[in-house]
Nucleic acid binder design. Sequence first.
DNA 1: CAGACAAGGCTTTTT
DNA 2: GCCTTGTCTG
Length: 738
Amino acid sequence: MPSKLLKELNASQREAVEYLDGPLLVLAGAGSGKTRVLTYKIGYLVETGVAAPYEILAVTFTNKAANEMKKRVEELIRIPLQGLWIGTFHSICARILRIEAQHLGYDRNFTIYDVDDQVRLIQQIMTGMNINQGVLKPRKVQYAISQSKNKMRGPKEFEERAGDFTTRKIADIFWEYEVALRRNNAFDFDDLLIKPLEIFSQQPDILEKYQTKFKYVLVDEYQDTNRAQYYFIKYLSAQHRKVCVVGDEDQSIYRWRGADIENILSFEKDYPECKVVRLEQNYRSTKVILKAANAVVAHNQRRLGKNLWSKKEHGAKISVHPTTDEGMEAATLVEIIRTETRQFNRNYNEIAVLYRTNAQSRALEDRLRRANIPYVIVGGIKFYERKEVKDVLAYLRILVNTRDSVALRRIINYPARGIGAATLQKLEEYAFLKKIPLYQAVVEVAENESIPLATKAKIQAFVDALEELRHKKENFSAYEIAREVVDTFGLAAQYSHSELIEDQNRLENINELLNSIAEFSEKNSDENATLEKYLEDVALLTDIDRWDPNFSAVTLMTLHSAKGLEFPVVIITGIEDGLFPLYRSLENQDDLEEERRLFYVGMTRAKENLYLLWARQRRRFSGESSGMSFRNTPSRFLKEIPQSYKEEVRTEDELVYSYDNSEGLLDSATVSAYAGEMMENEDYHIGDWVIHPTYGKGQILAVQNSHTGTKLTVAFSNKQIKKLIAEYANLKSVSSSD
DNA sequence: CAGACAAGGCTTTTT
DNA sequence: GCCTTGTCTG
């Protein structure tokens, strides 16, 4: 039956969907409909009966993409996709580990450790080993271990390569860390990818089970797979060899995380019989944006090469905005957003603001807040990484996995209940001597001679409360348990009595967490709505998964987070040499090419209008040069955009500060932002108050010296903004605002 | 043992 | 500049 699905595809897309006989490499340029191909391919496989949903494994880059894709396919073919395995590498691996964990000596209710948990565990280990954490930072150790695991090197391989003293010390910690993870019945993020491979190599029968099961394996964003992910796909598809990978070498941006662009570049070597389909028609961007992006990425050496084209309109030129400093950059940003929303009637959610580093968001946020422009930030401090959220989760974790000592330590005296460092030390000694998990030592506190009676009573009360909940867990929903945890241990109460905005936020976050658990309980059928499953979901969720594109707000995020998304208007900030590309990538050709790909990714997110902002001066707060201002030159990538596709806009010369503030007062940051460039004039200063014969009292927003005289931009109390020539305006200056 | 205050470090990107 | 961590005092 020739599926009607195929009619909705162009020739290349159709070719990619229809080819089912063997390995397939789809080289899909930005905006060329690769998600569409994957979606339709799954639909086609199921509709034609070539494969049942449970015989398909589909790997996506985010959980959100997985959910959307599944929903979309079900809408298309109107067949429920029960049993389909779709999700990120991490979630699929976690699923396998739940089933097979016993082969590694783990329980199926293992915990997944995020970076924060890993660092806490490493701190514990280092304390135990008497290593000075001031000299060797736990965070550094965590990074080194993670990087090593990303390359599939365990403690043994790490030790073999360890040259200097510090690295050998890290190797020692690495060994202990692995032991501790096992003891805690926990995997870290990197384990999720590595451990299934361990099981596969130790027990070929288990590998074979999955190889037989998955007739078709589909992988999105293949250019960003690392070594472990590469082997994972290779092993699982070895039997049927029906593996379809989709990717774009020009969008490979995760080298630092161990992603190996070679995986896609050499796919044809791995599978000599493979078919290659190129998707080169871009449906997203205007011709100008696309050609400019192509011109930039053409500077890279290591690529398969492709020729992206678009049938869309020519479109507006890319506007490049040089600004004085980060304050002016933010002011310019506000101005652009105002123009787009007021003049061109855009909704806020049609606009994305992208930057290289999370730290850049603060200056932008401040200004957006003052200008009353609604915005959401994706990334940065993630919701599930917030202290108050992690506190609640730690309680839930210890209920599920009593061996999770990282969780236990976090909550044993939080909120404070009189179990201090000294007591914890005694409990730990007890656990160590009896070779039992810390939680067990807490349960057995009655038998512990070294702890004073009064303290014992406190610990006993804590244990009793936990144990009661642990038993309730079997018969109550995840939400009910979480609600009770929060009430029993007073996790919200401590914030609800406070008037600090910060505490109010924390309270809100706890409520939001409870809501999310309630939503989870409702959405999933009973057997899947367990606390265990919830904790796993949460551990693997990213901020982008929680992001609602329909919410009417400007979206702020890093360029990395923007991958896979599109917006009518994209504003990229901080396009300066040293920031983008970053200094540390300037020396190395491979690193520089990755930065360029990142810029390419950013540019190609834009459908209609693209703005590029950079600041001549920017304050930095990292490294030795902390707090210093730097003179910047525009990013070398800017020069790689052909002149005919861009135009420079000197916004600040004509920038009029929009005047929403009804009191007519300018905040100090605004004043200083304007003051940066234009303080030269002796008679008039930004922020000064003046009286005009007809307009009345006003405040100076901008001063410019031009050949016609001193141009002033003044905001008057009737909310009018006027540009005046000082020499003719007959202004009187007033000393203060009254 | 808990809360207040000071010092130090940090920021490249994320599952 | 802000946040986390450590130290001091009650």
